[in-house]
């Protein structure tokens, strides 16, 4: 058993609680259950994207195109909904997943089959996906009045005090956690990123595992595409611009190693919550948004330092082995 104090998720949870308490001292209204639920709902999309990104990062890749994927998927469903409001919501949800998944497949194939470094692939597809939104929409916005009431209303449906958006995030977190813990693919993410050579020896296909991670990230980005567009009731070329950096930051703060092989669902969720809380709370206690960026930046670097310290490698121990033999 690992002592709790060495457990990254536990430490991060403490930090998040301390953060909430600290904010509560300055602004007690922030710590009401209603407001915390609001913060959680605000962070839902970031949380889900962070889970997909975590899978990708764990296999030693990166997905810079998540936000562009989200925007493109969101634009496609918004346009379809605007063009034909009669199309039922389940079809639109399926559509957003198909579009997001397909964009993930493109990333995954370029990494797996063509063998281009992931950062280059997704830097390219980031621009391509954004450009495609412009081509589809001609630069026009889809506004609230063009969307059907069901389209806008679905994520807002309340159930047990939380909107459906937050419930979606909870279900996704549980699903991903189960997939990572109890499927061979989930375990392969750790193996492929932790030691690719050993993964080959274990009979795993490194490229195919990376491909699967991209598809997962794409599917989640597609789902979040609809959620984002309906929540903010607008779709245009630049929605969620730069949001991929928040997603990667949530992973890094949550202890996902950028070198691959290390990461937990709990960590990624807490990382996202940490960013969500700072983003929501700092304006409340009157701190400028510029400080907020500096704080998340500082936290990212602190997280990386803490993670790097726990992973020092040892030498070959020739003498100790020799002694062990005699």
């Amino acid at each position: 058993m690992q002592p709790l104090i060495r457990n990254r998720e536990f430490l991060l949870a403490l930090v998040v609680i301390a953060l909430i308490a600290l904010i509560g001292l300055r602004a007690p209204e922030f710590v009401t259950p209603g407001n915390l639920a609001q913060v959680f709902t605000d962070t839902s999309i970031l949380m889900m994207l962070a889970l997909g990104q975590m899978a990708v990062i764990m296999t030693r890749c990166i997905d810079l195109s998540v936000a562009a994927n989200l925007a493109l998927s969101g634009m496609v469903v918004a346009m379809v909904n605007a063009a034909n409001p009669a199309i039922p919501m389940p079809v639109l949800l399926l559509l957003t997943l198909v579009v997001g998944g397909a964009l993930g497949v493109v990333n995954g194939l370029l990494v797996w089959r063509v063998g281009i470094p992931s950062i280059v692939v997704t830097l390219g597809t980031l621009s391509i996906y954004r450009g495609t939104i412009f081509l589809l929409s001609g630069g026009a916005w889809i506004n609230a009045h063009q969307m059907s009431p069901a389209f806008i209303g679905l994520p807002r449906v309340e159930f047990l005090g939380l909107p459906l958006l937050a419930w979606t995030a909870i279900v996704i977190v549980l699903l991903v956690a189960a997939a990572i813990a109890w499927t061979r693919l989930g375990r392969a993410f750790y193996a492929v990123g932790g030691n690719p050579t050993a993964a080959v020896y274990a009979g795993l296909d490194v490229g195919r595992t990376q491909f699967a991670a991209y598809v997962m990230s794409g599917l989640l980005a597609g789902l979040c595409g609809y959620l984002w567009v309906s929540r903010y009731a607008v779709a245009y070329v630049d929605i969620a611009g730069g949001f991929e950096l928040d997603v990667i930051a949530a992973c890094v703060i949550g202890g996902v190693s950028i070198a691959g092989g290390i990461g937990t669902v709990g960590g990624a969720v807490l990382g996202a919550l940490f960013l969500g809380i700072t983003k929501n709370a700092l304006p409340v206690i009157g701190v400028s948004p510029f400080w907020q960026m500096a704080i998340s930046g500082g936290v990212i670097i602190a997280a990386v330092i803490i993670n790097a310290r726990s992973g020092r490698r040892r030498g070959r121990l020739i003498l100790r082995e020799a002694q062990a033999q005699s």
Binding site: Y190, A191, N195, A198, A202, G203, L204
Partner: peptide
């Protein structure tokens, strides 16, 4: 795999 448990190392894949 250094980061995984012994059981997982034995049965990976």
């Amino acid at each position: 795999f250094d980061e995984l448990t012994v059981a997982e190392n034995i049965f990976m894949g």
